[in-house]
Amino acid sequence: MFYFDHHLEIGLGLTIFGVGIIFLGMVFLFDKGLLAVGNILFLAGLSLIIGFERTFRFFFQRYKLKSTALFFGGILLVLIGWPVIGMLIECYGFFLLFGGFIPIVINFLRRLPIIGSILLLPGIRQITDKLSDSRSMV
């Protein structure tokens, strides 16, 4: 059984809630208020999950500065009032920053009961295998 301390529980909740609000903001035709709140909740949750210092070190590593600039630049564009362009830039920066975790997430999802059986279907398995292989090479 896993033991979660209070910071981890709150951080996980904020992160999931932030991603949900970002999704709602995109569903409601890129509502900049929802997108901004979702981004803030996501970053706050991530900081509580892994700690403030480790979050800072993750984003500001030398080889990740371009991705970090794209991610935070997209957030800034959303806050300024250009939500569509900001989300495109932010999604690209997010993929560059967190793309190394794709193989880990795919392998974890394959172990879940319903989602795992879907990911193990022949056509989908080929796609997920290519994603896992291409991101592990980077």
Rank of each mutant, 00 (worst) to 15 (best):
F2A: 06
Y3W: 12
F4V: 07
D5K: 05
D5H: 11
D5I: 08
H6E: 14
H7D: 10
H7Q: 12
I10N: 03
G11M: 02
G11P: 02
G13K: 02
L14H: 03
F17K: 03
I21L: 07
I21H: 00
I22S: 09
I22V: 06
I22Q: 07
L24H: 03
M26F: 15
V27N: 11
V27S: 10
F28A: 07
L29K: 15
F30G: 08
K32F: 11
L34A: 12
V37H: 10
V37K: 08
V37W: 11
I40V: 15
I40A: 08
F42K: 03
L43D: 09
L43N: 12
A44M: 07
L46V: 08
L46Y: 14
S47R: 10
S47G: 14
G51Y: 08
F52Q: 09
F52C: 12
R54K: 11
F56D: 03
F56G: 09
F60E: 08
F60W: 10
R62M: 13
R62P: 03
K66S: 15
S67F: 10
T68F: 09
L70D: 01
F71L: 04
F71A: 02
F72I: 05
F72H: 01
G73H: 12
G74Y: 03
I75C: 04
L76S: 12
L76Y: 11
L77N: 09
V78E: 06
V78I: 15
V78A: 08
V78Y: 05
L79E: 11
L79T: 10
G81S: 02
G81D: 06
W82E: 10
P83R: 10
V84C: 08
I85W: 12
M87W: 14
M87N: 11
M87C: 05
L88M: 10
L88G: 12
L88Q: 13
I89G: 01
I89S: 01
I89F: 11
Y92M: 15
F95Y: 15
F95V: 13
L96A: 02
L96P: 00
L97G: 03
F98V: 00
P103K: 08
I104L: 14
V105T: 07
I106Q: 07
I106E: 05
L109S: 03
L112V: 09
P113T: 04
I114M: 13
I115C: 00
I115V: 14
I115P: 00
G116A: 04
G116M: 02
I118V: 12
I118P: 00
L119V: 04
L119G: 01
T128G: 05
L131N: 06
S132E: 13
S132N: 06
D133L: 15
D133Q: 14
R135M: 14
